[in-house]
Design a protein around this nucleic acid. Structure first.
Lengths: 162, 162
DNA sequence: TCCATAAATTATGAGTCCCGTACTATATGA
DNA sequence: TCATATAGTACGGGACTCATAATTTATGGA
């Protein structure tokens, strides 16, 4: 790695590039981690992705909404939901108002199982976080949140273009 | 969101949870982004993953090493490498010393094309990063790096267990 | 009310992909 | 030299994703 000094504009740019490269590495590691967790649960990567989107989303979702948020074809979700329903991860509720519509409901039973598998990562993260002050944690939280937003707008720039 | 005050231990824990949740969201957004970029390049998600691992890794890799780093079966990589080679992303070099071994070499030609597709994300990130001081950037870079390491150890804890 | 149109989801079929196994070629060590 | 181990790949089975079409239900106008 080339030498740069603090206060130099190049040093600033280099640090920014380190952050970007780190985020790429992070994505790869998280994908690997999910792959491992998924294989213990007999879940495909996409299946776990869908579960992740479901848990991270505020309200319940319909298949179409989930397909959009997971970047999948609506018809593909039928197969995924079939698998997840058969394995007891979700149920499909027919909406009372619009009986064409289906809302996907997460079953809570398996939550502990998943949590246990993610524990090595969560524990390691707790150790990392313990080394920062509360102000520093808030700085990091803000950065992560804004990076997520950056990703969201970057993705939506693709959506509207096509 | 529940109210907590700075200085409270609960507030600290809450901020930590925000960070973890944010990282989950970030992974999802980056997966979506890669999916979009990949579809413009006629690349499967796994294919782009492999290219990503290849560019992010320091030296050239063999198929077995890449399979391990990407969480795939060695035989699966044969098909992936066939596709990537046919489309002009990589070439397979026979090693002179051990003629069983193959090293994968990235062809540089397509780099610009990829960079252009990631530009919306990279540009948005530059805007985010511009709002931080150099010290703050280094703090963030350190956090990202340590989180990557946390992920790496979490993944390897699975590897040795089986 | 009745009908045409739209919307949400799913059935179907075609094409592709991933993985386990077995095979070839090469290297290593006794 | 020969047995064993290793790296990569061919092959076949099973599963998956996607595009299209079908089904069911909602909606709005005549």
């Amino acid at each position: 790695m080339e030498q740069t000094q603090p206060g130099d504009a190049r040093h600033r740019r280099r640090t920014g590039n380190d952050i970007k490269a780190g985020i790429r590495d992070l994505r790869i590691q998280l994908a690997l981690l999910n792959h491992q967790v998924g294989s213990r649960l007999a879940l495909k990567d996409v299946d776990l992705d869908c579960l992740d989107v479901l848990t991270r989303s505020s309200g319940p979702l319909t298949p179409s909404a989930l397909a959009r948020r997971a970047g999948l074809h609506p018809a593909t979700l039928t197969g995924i939901l079939d698998r997840l329903e058969r394995a007891g991860w979700i149920v499909r509720d027919r909406a009372a108002t619009d009986r064409r519509s289906v809302t996907i409901r997460l079953l809570p039973d398996r939550g502990v199982e998943v949590f246990r598998l993610y524990q090595p990562m969560l524990g390691a993260m707790d150790e990392v976080l313990a080394d920062y002050t509360e102000e520093e944690l808030e700085l990091i939280a803000g950065f992560v949140q804004r990076t997520v937003e950056a990703g969201r707008t970057a993705v939506s720039s693709f959506d509207q273009e096509s």
